[in-house]
Computed example of a mutant assay.
Amino acid sequence: MSTDHEGVRDLLGAWAVGALTPADQKTVPLHLAECESCAAEAERLRETVRLLGGAPRPPLANGALAGIDGVLTVALRARPAAPRVASHAAPYAAAVAGLQALLRELDGHGPWGAPVVHDWDVHATVAHLIAADEPLARRLGLAARVPESPVAEGTGWADAWAARTAAVIAYEQRRTPEETVAAWTAQAAALLATPEARDPERAAHATTLMGVRLPVADHFVVRAFEAWIHTDDIGRALGLAVPPPPDPHLWQLVRLAVRILGMALGPTAPPVLFAVTGGEPDAQWVLGSEDEPVRAELALDPVDFCLLVGGRYAPDEVPRGAAGDDAAIRDVLERAASLAWL
């Protein structure tokens, strides 16, 4: 491995979680001893990994995936939120820790080429998360982990996003899965080390990312949503049960999704009394017009609702309780499903 600054920076995430190759274990410390900026970032990453409970685990004997399902479930359920991040960043911290726990089971023997979602395998899905986290990372002053890719002036956010994620995946597929995981880990840790992840006041200012204007605090919740969805995608592809986020975090995802759904429906949609069942007694909202009587009632499980908004359920397939105007109910379900870009 080269000891140049950029080469070492890409390995700092692996260094923080103790996942360097034997060769890199010799060269990275030499660079850190000489480079003050890399050494400072390395310490920040290691502290963040410690707070996330991300100490590396030994590889499984015989390189087998068999039998890890129960172990993985326990590890994911036990994943902690970093105590030094604010509540708005805690779901993202926990989602990052959960995906790290899953990916550690694949080190050295994992089926990185297994199809996951869209036309992505496991490797490409992790690369996609680098691109997905990048807009918030760049807005908070962090450097890009992948070389810039040109986008024509005037390109809409959706087309620009599609082009960037394709470029990031193409770049990362020329590298090893371990290098891609290290780059994603480092970027996630750097996001969680920003002042905005720790200070609610700094995270209160609004910014437009992925076509939606929200407070930075809410953009952290969006990042948690996507990290969990893709962890679940990878788990399903490998036949492993991935539990949902811890209840407090799950309800943060639900409440934000309801707010965005309400904005998408607008004030003239037929009013529907929407309830998310299980957990919070006041988890119901009137979506749509406030000037008409409610036309229908719709109830969804919180995980099913999140999977619908994440594009993992079709509107006519999601389990639900419903009564009243079928067209109004269909409008809510179809609008919720349309929010997905994952």
Rank of each mutant, 00 (worst) to 15 (best):
R145D: 10
V74N: 01
A189W: 07
Q25N: 10
T207N: 02
M210V: 14
D107P: 00
T231L: 05
L12G: 05
M210T: 14
P195G: 15
V8Q: 01
V49F: 07
P248V: 11
D247V: 08
A337Q: 11
V212I: 15
G324E: 12
I68N: 06
D331T: 13
V168W: 02
S87I: 10
V286S: 06
A158R: 09
G7A: 15
E178F: 00
R46L: 13
L273E: 09
G266I: 14
R320L: 15
H109K: 01
L191C: 10
A204S: 13
V212H: 11
G321I: 11
S37Y: 03
P150E: 13
E280T: 01
S149C: 07
D233R: 00
D218W: 03
L99H: 03
V168P: 02
E179K: 00
V71C: 01
T48E: 13
R175N: 12
I260E: 09
S37R: 06
H123S: 14
L136A: 13
A66E: 15
P56F: 06
L342N: 14
L52S: 07
G211W: 08
H5M: 12
A323P: 07
E43N: 13
E292N: 07
P271D: 05
W15G: 02
I130H: 01
E43Y: 08
V242Q: 08
A33P: 05
R312P: 12
A340Q: 04
P215I: 12
A237I: 09
R175M: 10
Q187I: 10
L129C: 08
A269E: 09
T194D: 08
E201I: 13
D331K: 00
A81H: 02
V303R: 04
T27A: 15
A241S: 11
E134Q: 10
A131Q: 02
W15A: 15
W157L: 02
L265F: 08
T155H: 06
A217R: 00
L102E: 05
V258M: 03
L298A: 12
Q284D: 06
A237C: 06
D24T: 14
A64H: 12
A132S: 14
L342S: 15
A101F: 05
A101P: 03
L51K: 01
W161L: 04
D291T: 15
D10C: 13
G13L: 11
A160C: 06
A93R: 00
L142W: 09
P244C: 07
V151F: 13
R330Y: 14
I329M: 04
L307C: 08
T231A: 08
T3W: 02
R223M: 09
D316E: 13
L261M: 07
